[in-house]
Design a protein around this nucleic acid. Structure first.
Lengths: 204, 204
DNA sequence: TAGATATTCAACACGGAGTTGATTATCTGT
DNA sequence: ACAGATAATCAACTCCGTGTTGAATATCTA
């Protein structure tokens, strides 16, 4: 029972969400007010407070939704591939799926990444990476004791790098295909940034 | 003439800056008001508006100052080393200096990186990297035509990755020394994240 | 020390935030 | 299609931070 949500709620939430995104694109999250949102959404201002505490709460909930989506993409794949986790085939397909998701939801992603949604998402991804790489270490080809640098920095490095590239891609209008982006990203990660820059690893 | 700044201005600006940082640490930038700042700084609220348009302007100016510092560290070194730009000696010393700066200004950096100062700084760094790596390409060992991935993504990757590691380091209380951090960071960048993870580059 | 200027102070208008209670509109389940 | 539930509207109100002003005061510089 009660798995269905009242259509009125769905409608207003959708309208609010859309208004939020367009306003973030237009004037940035800082500059927008609850009044702005409800005006653009053609919603009574009081109605907003029936669903959200304030604009920050709205942002948080939007963020959580996106975070859940991302998490699901990661889980869906890591679940399948107990065996195929070798030789970089897995990460490539993960990353490609993620890029496809980002492209499909480009406006929301752009809006969120322009706020501190960045931080929140990155923190969550780092947690997920840690969990899946080190704890239930199905990825048998990575072992914490083999690391040549502290694990927390390695994870931060990779997570932040990937987000940076995603952001650049979104800002540039998603010109490359998700598959191309996945290739680029895994290429840099697997071969190393300097190798990707056309240099054979120098001795330093 | 007039190279000296009125001491009253210096004092109030310093107080405002300090109040800003402590308040960001305490409740975050979103939640703080101009009233909060002036109260903590023991400053009349009207005085604030003599120097800043609003709290965002204050943040921007603080940000610009830090950005200038970073820029100067980068320039100071790249200026010296026309010859020694080979074999990774240069980047290591750059990065170490930067970490030292971050540690010395940890509270401000923490506060700024918790806001969208992150974005601003990252954008500026990317611009600087682009300029120094590709345009006046003194770094003769990197050539745009040799790149195996698009330059904008490579730069985004590296810049974001470095910021991610800096953030992790600051959040963890700067336990490693700047030298250690510089080693870790250049190690991952030169050898590649997966190599740093203890894997010999897999074929994918 | 004199003149300049930064700071203080009190007061003001303005606008968005968040809440409330009554009314109306719309949905859900049968 | 209907009745009951509940979501949205509307108007009104309080609260609080904002940004500005003009006059008085304090502090700096030269």
């Amino acid at each position: 029972m009660s798995e269905t949500v009242d259509r009125r709620i769905t409608r207003t939430k959708r309208a609010i969400r859309a208004a939020l995104v367009s306003l973030i694109e237009e004037k940035g999250f800082d500059a927008l007010s609850v009044k702005d949102i409800t005006a653009r959404a053609n919603i009574n201002r009081g109605t907003f407070y029936l669903h959200y505490k304030d604009k920050f709460d709205l942002l948080d909930q939007t963020l959580e939704e996106v975070a859940r989506d991302i998490e699901n993409i990661l889980l869906e794949i890591t679940a399948l591939s107990g065996i195929d986790v070798v030789k970089g085939k897995l990460p490539l397909s993960i990353v490609e799926k993620l890029f496809a998701y980002f492209k499909a939801n480009a406006p929301v992603m752009q809006a969120l990444l322009a706020t501190k949604g960045n931080h929140a998402l990155q923190a969550q991804i780092k947690k997920t990476m840690w969990h899946h790489v080190f704890e239930k270490n199905r990825a048998t080809f990575i072992k914490k004791e083999n690391l040549l640098v502290p694990p927390e920095y390695l994870i931060s490095y990779i997570a932040a790098a990937h987000f940076g590239v995603v952001q650049e891609w979104l800002d540039g209008g998603c010109r490359e295909t998700p598959a191309e982006m996945a290739r680029i990203l895994t290429y840099i990660t697997f071969r190393g940034p300097l190798f990707a820059a056309g240099i054979s690893s120098p001795n330093f």
